[in-house]
Amino acid sequence: MAATQEKPTTRLISGPGMLLVWLYGVMVVGAVSRSIVQISTEFEHAPLAYSLSALAGVVYGFITYSLVRGGETARKAARFCCAAELAGVLVVGTWTLVEPSAFPDTTVWSEYGMGYLFIPVLLPITAMYWLRKTAPQGDAA
């Protein structure tokens, strides 16, 4: 890993953090490559679904970068993005169930990420728990 040099900042990739980086990395590759292919070849087919996949990919990318980078600011930023991600999964997941016609094709977040073994909905919860645990003593923010 790139950020292994000893720093006084909060290290976010020790222990369970390493597993999170791997899973987020997989989601980045999955969501980004998927949306690149779909947007470049058949964007008109399902613009909303493909745009959402691209957005999901960007959010995942940012969280992965924050985890690897470490430090207090990155920790807070990652927590914020995890919350946004969770909200995204829940909103889009519900949306795809209530109004399937808006989505001619699936997104990463369709049906709460069922096509991805529900990892999209489980991951932000786990990550938020982890980021809370790595908070400096006496700071639960």
């Binding site: 292994t4 020790s14 369970p16 390493m18 597993l19 791997w22």
Partner: peptide
């Protein structure tokens, strides 16, 4: 990654 993280994780 497991080389960088020498624990059970």
């Amino acid at each position: 990654m497991s080389l960088a993280e020498r624990t059970r994780w």
